[in-house]
Computed example of a mutant assay.
Amino acid sequence: MASTPVSKKQKTSKDAPYELIYWPGLPGRGEHVRLALEEAGASYTDSAHLEDGMKLVLSHIDTKNLGDAANPPPLAPPILKHGDLIINQTPNILLYLGPRLGLVPKAEDDEDGIYKVNELALTALDGLSNEAHDTHHPIATGQYYEDQKEEAKKKSADYIKNRIPKFLGYFERVLKGEASKGGKWLYGGEVTYADLVLFQCLDGVKFAFPKAVGRMEKEGKFKSVFEHYERVKERPKIKAYLASERRQKYSLGIYRHYAELDED
């Protein structure tokens, strides 16, 4: 006897509201998702601004949560809920949102464009987010900064000298490259979520190392990158968001400013 076929899961409706689930009190990795939603003018809820936001985050990452029939349990925020869909991991969420928010090239115009955008976003996250976090926690994320302060100084000195210039130099080349289509945006001549990711990463690094990054900006070696930063910052919806209460201040998250880690 033939087994009963499993019914296909319906696609999430475009009209379903987006729900961002992230820690209250700091921008963190959730900020990349917020910027995409804000740039697109999408309707969304944010646990950071809900009364029981912390409980909501903890309920999703509780070790007792086994997920459901369609969704494995998320490990950590940011988490996106869209209808029946629940996904986590910042780049994964952006890859999902990109086509729906118009922040990647249309498939019929550039079939592989989404992968180019994702590549650029991943590169920015690698060097200007993940590595930036490791400057203040170079040994163990579970230890206090004060317990690894001397190692953090060494890590930060190398990050300022070698790693920040490496990644800013890379994006300088991207903006000057032919695939940028004009040098205003990273890929294809239109703003994509990769542009928003680079903006947020550079904004965080500027906060963490204001003297070092300020010097780099004055030197002019990465002029296109800093002009790109200002261009994103002045986009109408991004500008309005940055001036609103929805934009949270930096705190004890990925980007932290310790004067002793910055250059003199």
Rank of each mutant, 00 (worst) to 15 (best):
S3L: 13
S3G: 13
S3R: 11
T4D: 11
V6G: 04
K8Y: 03
K8I: 12
K9I: 13
K11S: 12
S13H: 07
S13V: 04
K14H: 11
A16Q: 12
P17M: 11
I21S: 01
I21D: 00
I21T: 06
Y22M: 03
Y22D: 14
W23I: 02
P24G: 07
P24L: 08
L26D: 07
P27R: 04
G28M: 02
R29D: 00
R29T: 04
G30H: 03
H32N: 14
V33L: 05
V33H: 01
L35F: 13
L35H: 01
E39S: 09
E39H: 13
E39C: 08
A40Y: 09
A40K: 09
Y44S: 05
Y44I: 08
T45C: 03
T45M: 06
D46C: 09
D46T: 07
A48C: 14
H49V: 10
L50W: 10
E51Q: 12
E51V: 13
E51S: 12
D52F: 05
M54I: 11
H60V: 00
I61E: 03
I61A: 04
T63P: 00
T63K: 14
N65G: 03
N65M: 03
G67D: 10
D68P: 02
D68G: 07
D68M: 08
A69V: 12
A69E: 15
A70D: 15
A70Y: 14
A70E: 15
P73F: 03
P73N: 08
L75N: 13
L75C: 05
A76P: 00
P77K: 05
P78D: 07
I79T: 03
L80V: 08
L80I: 11
L80K: 03
